[in-house]
């Protein structure tokens, strides 16, 4: 352990922090889907991670169809064209995930609204199994290469710390997406309806809010964010596989709870914390202890703040 510690010091704390924050903002983006759905119908949507996986598979298929899996083409194409293609991939994945999430809600979760929570959770696990099996049929068991479109060149002059276009891209997509979501929930009529439904569905219904529509919109938004996250993840990590929904979904769920379930800024903070802890523990304790460390810290935090990091301060859900 001390040996690893020394190695890590040599490579630099700052570097791990950068990677951790980038990973964290990805977790946060996925976590938003969890936390919004939870805020409204109190469902832990275990299928969300696997929805994310299917979104990534769709993006691979879409980008391959645009010809981007051919490195020669990707290298020669002008940057603006690439940007458009990637944007197209993001849009396609977001639409696909939103549609799939809404469909899952319509078919599976909606009939269970009045049932106890466990019933809906088990259904979500069932949906997750179906998604994983679909992913397996779709792309097979081996990892699938995601086109490497964004250069790894260091933007900083320094020799030690590296900040690449990829890092910038992740934050550049996730931060505006989260900001847009916050603004949407805060200022649009639909966002207001969401907050109202989260606070009290019955009262919201009495006030003329179409609760079913609001829930569908929430699933659509959460799904779309998962789709966006899937493409950004693919561009950053550069390979996707049918099992990636598990770890990412688990971390995102953890992020949502850590921040205080149902709380949007909480999910973001939770995601960042988990990303940083995950990467730092890989560096200082060895990669094999990373998951155990993340969950140990989670438990400690929850012991002292039982409603999550931001849960106690903000009462309001969504």
């Amino acid at each position: 352990m001390p040996e690893l510690f020394a190695q890590a010091e040599a490579a630099g704390f700052g570097q791990f922090l950068v990677t951790g924050l980038v990973m964290g903002s990805l977790y946060a983006l996925i976590a938003l889907g969890y936390t919004m759905v939870y805020g409204i119908i109190e469902l832990i949507n275990f299928a969300h991670g696997d929805l994310f996986m299917l979104g990534a598979f769709l993006a691979v298929t879409h980008l391959a169809w645009s010809g981007l899996t051919d490195p020669a083409f990707a290298a020669s194409a002008p940057a603006y064209l690439l940007a458009w293609m990637v944007a197209g991939g993001i849009a396609a994945a977001a639409l696909f995930c939103a549609a799939l999430n809404v469909a899952a809600d319509r078919v599976v979760y909606r009939p269970l609204r009045a049932s106890p929570k466990l019933t809906a959770i088990v259904s979500a696990v069932g949906v997750s199994f179906v998604f994983v099996n679909l992913g397996l049929f779709w792309k097979g068991p081996s990892p699938v290469k995601f086109p490497d479109l964004i250069p790894d060149t260091n933007l900083l002059a320094s020799d030690g710390l590296r900040l690449t276009w990829k890092d910038v891209m992740v934050v550049g997509v996730t931060a505006p997406a989260m900001l847009a979501l916050t603004l949407f929930v805060r200022y649009t009529p639909l966002g207001k309806a969401m907050r109202a439904t989260a606070q009290n569905p019955t009262a919201a219904r009495l006030m003329g809010v179409d609760v079913d529509r609001v829930v569908s919109a929430t699933f659509a938004l959460g799904g779309a964010l998962a789709g966006v996250a899937a493409v950004v993840y693919g561009l950053y990590i550069k390979a996707v596989d049918f099992q990636m929904g598990f770890q990412n979904g688990l971390y995102a769920f953890t992020a949502a709870v850590l921040g205080g379930v149902g709380n949007i800024p909480g999910a973001v903070v939770g995601g960042l914390v988990i990303g940083v802890v995950g990467e730092l523990s890989k560096a200082y304790l060895g990669a094999k202890w990373s998951e155990a460390t993340v969950f140990a810290i989670l438990i400690v935090i929850l012991v002292f703040r039982p409603a999550g990091l931001l849960g106690a301060r903000t009462r309001e859900k969504v």
Binding site: T254, V257, W289, A292, F295, G308
Partner: peptide, 26 residues
């Protein structure tokens, strides 16, 4: 962690399960 409410408790038990798994592995 008994004072945690429902879903937080669920997550803690999940985390404990994972910590045990990694302890066994490592």
């Amino acid at each position: 962690v008994l004072r945690l409410r429902g879903d937080y408790l669920a997550l803690v038990t999940l985390g404990f399960g994972l910590i045990t798994l990694y302890a066994i592995r490592n």
